[in-house]
Structures are given as C-alpha cells and as structure tokens.
C-alpha cells in the first residue's frame, strides 16, 4: 500500500459518500445519472467476485463491501425510493449504456491477461469503469447547471483514478515485474475522459463562478 493508492481509495470513498449523503439528506438525485450508477454497481459486482474467496486484508475486504453496498443502495434509492425517484430526470438520462456494456465485454473476451471467467470478468470491470462516467457527463452537458454536490462527486470520482495512476507509476518503479498494461491503459482512458470536466471544474472554482459546461 502506498500513499497514492490510499489517497485514491479515500477519494473514491469520499465520492460515494458525497453522493449517498446528497441523496439521503436532501432526498434528491437531481443531476445524477442512474445509468452511471448502474454501471458502477456492475463494475463492482464483476470486479469483487473474489470477495469471499481470496482474503487480502481487512482493509481490502471492508472497502469492497462499502463500495458494493453504497453503489447498490444508490441504485436502489434512485429506482425505488418513493421520494428520491421523483427527482430522477429519466427523459434527460437517455445514454444507451447497454452500448457500453457489450463492447467492454467483447473487448474483455479478446484482450485479457488470462482467459478464465474471473480474469475476464475482472478485465470487463476495468474497461466498463473507464466508460461508466459517460452517461453522467452527457447528463451534465444537457442539464448544464451543476449543483456543487454533483460537481464534487464527479470531481472526486475522476481524482481517485488519477491518484491510482500515480500509484501504478510508484509500484512500477518500486516493485520488480509489476507490469499491468490493461489496468494502466484503461485507467488512463478513464482519467482522460474526465479531463475536460476537470478543466471546466477548475475554471469555475478559480473564477468562483457556478460550474457551467459548454453545450
């Protein structure tokens, strides 16, 4: 464990807690893409298949349970909670996320480190996580005005993967034969997808104006 990875995990944890806090306290999911949340639940479900078979550390198991629990409860809130669901803007959240799932699955079947069910599922979760934010970014473009909790959520979500890239660089230089191209490339793609959001987020923060994304 290194500081970059720990900071990345804490940032990731903060992003899901910010979202849960927003939904649970103000009972609203305005501006939140249910599709991105469903994709994230799928990412965690396919990545943490080893939850009950390989014990790595208490920290690892605990964090996996938190991510699984939070992502599925967020989906539940937006889908079924009688108050929260009313603020879900399904006419705007129209990204066909199934078009993301299938290519990621096919790609995982083609490009993976080992052709086993667990490894393909794990690789699928990496590719899917890289594009899971797209419905959310599209929704933000459409709804234009971004309340700051949603802005913070997306920012933290992007920052966590950027910190993971630092972690991979650190591990590459400190651990012999630590090479995982699939992880690195999908993590880089994921972070680049946030790049334009980061740019506008930083601009709005610097000029102290409300975050507006160009149409």
């Amino acid at each position: 464990m290194n500081i970059f990875r720990f900071a990345g995990d804490m940032t990731h944890l903060a992003s899901v807690l910010v979202l849960l806090l927003k939904i649970h306290t103000i009972k609203s999911c305005a501006g939140i893409s249910l599709k991105t949340q469903e994709l994230y639940a799928l990412v965690f479900a396919t990545r943490y298949l080893d939850l009950f078979t390989d014990y790595i550390s208490l920290y690892n198991t605990l964090m996996k349970l938190i991510f699984l629990g939070s992502s599925f409860s967020i989906v539940w809130y937006i889908r079924y909670h009688k108050i929260v669901r009313r603020s879900y803007d399904k006419d705007q959240d129209t990204f066909r996320h199934y078009f993301l799932v299938l290519p990621c699955l096919l790609l995982a079947l083609l490009i993976n480190e080992k052709f086993t069910f667990r490894e393909v599922m794990w690789t699928f979760s990496l590719y899917l996580e890289a594009v899971a934010i797209l419905p959310q970014l599209v929704l933000l473009q459409r709804t234009r005005n971004i309340d700051n909790l949603t802005g913070q959520y997306v920012f933290l979500l992007g920052a966590y993967r950027a910190l993971y890239i630092l972690n991979w660089i650190y591990r590459y230089f400190t651990e012999p034969h630590y090479v995982h191209w699939i992880t690195w490339i999908s993590g880089l793609v994921q972070t680049l997808l946030y790049a334009d959001f980061f740019y506008y987020y930083f601009q709005s923060w610097k000029n102290n104006v409300k975050l507006e994304l160009p149409a």
């Binding site: 990875r5 990731h12 390989d54 790595i56 550390s57 794990w122 651990e175």
Partner: peptide, 10 residues
C-alpha cells in the same frame, strides 16, 4: 495471493 498482482487493489 501474490501481492504484486494488481488484484490486491480495489
């Protein structure tokens, strides 16, 4: 679990 594998990450 060989700790150097990336599977020890979240």
């Amino acid at each position: 679990i060989n700790a150097d594998s990336v599977k020890d990450e979240l």
